[in-house]
Structure formats: structure tokens, C-alpha cells
Amino acid sequence: MPWFVKIEQGIVDKPTFDKYVPAHKAYVQDLIAKGHQARSGYWAERGGGMLLFQAATIEEARAIVSQDPLVKNGCVKYELHEWRVVVE
């Protein structure tokens, strides 16, 4: 299954963003349980973060990202890319 990455930048104040972090973490746990091998984190040296996950198609990846609580609640702007693994 292809890998996809959502690279995001926060666009709301920290208290608003932090309000949706628990729901985002639960959402990522659900993706893991469904076999998407999701990983989520943030950049140590700057604002923003990344969600790495597997999906069957770019359309499925878009649907997955659209359900992320950080996206649904307007907390981030993001780019979605297919990531092609070269070395495993």
C-alpha cells in the first residue's frame, strides 16, 4: 500500500489548537487500528507537523486527511503528498 504524508502548519492560536490535539491523537490511534500504519508528530525546531500513513489511493488519502480533527476544525493548513519509499 502506498505511503502518504500530510505536512501541516498551524493557523490558529495555541489554546485553540491544543483543544483538538486529544481528538487528533485518538484519530491517529484509530488509523493505526485500521491498518494505515499512521505516525504523527511535530517539528522540534519550528512550528507545524506531519502525519505519515498508508492508503490504497490518493483519493483514500484525501478522505483520511479530511477527517482529521485538526483539519475539520480549521486548525491547520496542509499539503498532501504520496511518498515513494526507495529503501526499506
Rank of each mutant, 00 (worst) to 15 (best):
E8W: 09
V28A: 05
K6D: 01
H24P: 05
P69N: 07
T16G: 04
T57V: 09
E45M: 15
F4W: 00
A56C: 02
E45S: 14
H81I: 06
A56D: 13
E45H: 15
Y27P: 04
L80H: 03
R39C: 04
A61M: 05
G47S: 13
E8P: 03
S40L: 03
G41L: 05
G74R: 14
A44E: 13
C75G: 10
L70A: 11
Q9M: 03
E82A: 07
K25Y: 09
I64E: 02
I11D: 08
K77P: 01
Q67F: 01
Y42W: 15
R46K: 15
K34L: 00
Q37V: 00
E82M: 08
A33H: 00
P2W: 09
I11A: 04
Q54C: 02
F53T: 04
K14Q: 12
A63D: 15
A33M: 01
V28Y: 12
H24Y: 06
A56M: 10
V28N: 06
A61P: 00
R62G: 08
M1C: 00
E60W: 06
D18P: 01
L70C: 05
P2E: 08
D18N: 14
G10M: 13
Y27T: 04
A38Q: 02
S66E: 12
Y78V: 02
Q37W: 05
A33S: 05
L51S: 06
Y78L: 06
C75R: 07
Y42R: 14
E8R: 06
V28W: 09
D68I: 04
L80G: 03
N73G: 06
Q67T: 10
K72P: 02
S40P: 11
C75E: 13
G35P: 03
F53R: 03
H24K: 11
V28H: 04
H24G: 03
H36C: 06
R39T: 02
V65H: 05
G49H: 03
M50R: 01
V21Q: 13
P2L: 10
A33V: 01
A26Q: 14
S66G: 04
A38W: 01
A56R: 12
A56W: 00
V76G: 11
M50P: 02
A26E: 15
W3C: 09
P22F: 14
W3V: 08
Y78Q: 03
E59G: 14
A44P: 05
I32W: 04
V65W: 00
V21K: 12
F4N: 02
E82K: 11
Y20S: 07
Y78D: 09
E79V: 02
F4Q: 07
A56H: 05
A61C: 04
P2R: 12
L52P: 07
H36A: 08
D13L: 12
K72W: 08
H36S: 00
I58E: 15
G35R: 07
G41W: 08
A61H: 06
V28E: 06
F53E: 06
V65P: 06
Q37F: 08
M50N: 10
E60Q: 15
